[in-house]
Amino acid sequence: LVKHPLQHAWTLWYYEPDRTKTWEDNQNQVSTFNTVEDFWSLFTHIRQPSEVKIGSDYSLFKENIRPMWEDKANKNGGRWMISLNRNQRPELDRYWIDTVLCLIGEAFENFDDVCGAVVNIRPKGDKIAVWTSNSNNKDALIEIGRKLKEGLNLPERFKIHYQTHNDAMVKNSSTVKSLYEI
C-alpha cells in the first residue's frame, strides 16, 4: 500500500478544561500525521466534536506550531471566525471535517498563510476558527476566507469574520473588533 503524502505534517491537539491545571497544560498533543491514510486512521478512531465534553477544543495545526497566540507563527496573525448558533450543533462535525479537509488538502492554493484550525465546543454556541500567520496579508486572508466558505458550503448570507489575535486578546471587550467580513 503506497500512502498518499500530504504537503504538510499536521498535529492534532485536544484541550479539556481542568481547573487544577493551567490552560497550556490542558492542551494535549494527540498525534501527528503526514499522509491521507494516517489522517483517516486517526480521525475515524477519535470522538467527533459533538461527542466530546462541553468546554473542550480540538486544534489541528501544522507540525511545530502550537495552538496558541504566543507561538511565533501566530503572534502576528489572526483567525477567520465561524460562529455557530445552538441549533447548528448537528452540523458541527461536518463543518469541522470540511475545515480539516481544506487544510490538509491545501485548498487555499497559492497562499501558505494557514497555521491551523480550532473547534470550540461550547454550550452557548460552537465556534470554528482558521488561524493565519499574517493579519496584514489581505490578499491571502480574503482568498482563505472565500475558500473556507466554499469548502463548508456556507450560504452567502452566513458571514464569517476575521480578527487579529491582538484584538482578540483584549479582555474587557465583549465583542471583538473584526478586520474583515465576507
Binding site: 498518499h4 500530504l6 491521507v36 491514510e37 479537509l101 488538502g105 491545501e106 485548498a107 492554493e109
Partner: peptide, 18 residues
C-alpha cells in the same frame, strides 16, 4: 514550486479504502 493538493471528494473516497 509544486504543491500537493487534494480535492475534498478524493480525500473522502480514501476514507473507506482499507
Amino acid at each position: 514550486g509544486t504543491k500537493i493538493v487534494y480535492e475534498r471528494t478524493f480525500l473522502m473516497n480514501l476514507r473507506n479504502s482499507p
